[in-house]
């Protein structure tokens, strides 16, 4: 089952509560004490999810760093440059589950491999999958250290930790 973000757009706009965002992948980072929020406007997901058959379930996602949006155009352009995402050479950021286990009551935990540029890291992430209609609403919030992925350098003002939020509906 494949779900394109484009398909989500209208849906999220009509359901503001809980899913206030039109963009499935959002992030936050502290810059000079202020929380900067941003999102990737282009992302795609490939989901195979069956709570009764977790060993054959998977969640995969991609975002295009070229679609990063922090509200300041020049900053976005800089984030795509070689000191950050280097999107010309690495057009995609990827994430996929390696295994998933249940924590009970719509709660799960997966080991995900995250790949940004040539950096890969396995990360254990909790998420919820709430049945909605014929499908599910997935939600996860986790943090990564941008320095583990070669995203910029150590900085006095910019935090290392990036909080990532993914909210996604799969029919």
């Amino acid at each position: 089952m494949r779900l394109l973000f484009v398909a989500l757009f209208s849906f999220f706009l009509s359901v503001p509560a809980g899913f206030q965002s039109a963009f499935p992948v959002r992030f936050q980072i502290k810059n000079a004490g202020i929380t900067v929020e941003g999102h990737f406007s282009e992302s795609s997901f490939d989901v195979q999810f069956n709570p009764k058959d977790l060993s054959n379930s998977y969640l995969r996602g991609k975002v295009l760093p070229s679609s990063i949006n922090t509200g300041i155009g020049l900053r976005d352009k800089h984030l795509q440059g070689r000191q950050y995402f280097q999107s010309a050479s690495y057009p995609e950021v990827q994430m996929h589950s390696k295994r998933i286990r249940s924590l009970g009551k719509n709660q799960y935990e997966g080991v995900f491999e995250i790949q940004i540029k040539d950096f890969r890291q396995d990360k254990t992430i909790s998420f919820s999958a709430i049945p909605k209609g014929k499908g599910y609403e997935f939600e996860a919030k986790f943090s990564i250290n941008r320095l583990d992925f070669g995203i910029g350098e150590k900085s006095l003002v910019l935090g290392d930790e990036v909080v990532v939020e993914i909210k996604l509906r799969k029919e």
Binding site: N31, A32, I34, I72, V157, L158
Partner: peptide
């Protein structure tokens, strides 16, 4: 001062 941070000035004009 808050606007200076929000607008991203701090990244280049870092205290």
């Amino acid at each position: 001062k808050i606007i200076f941070a929000q607008q991203g000035c701090v990244t280049c004009h870092t205290p």
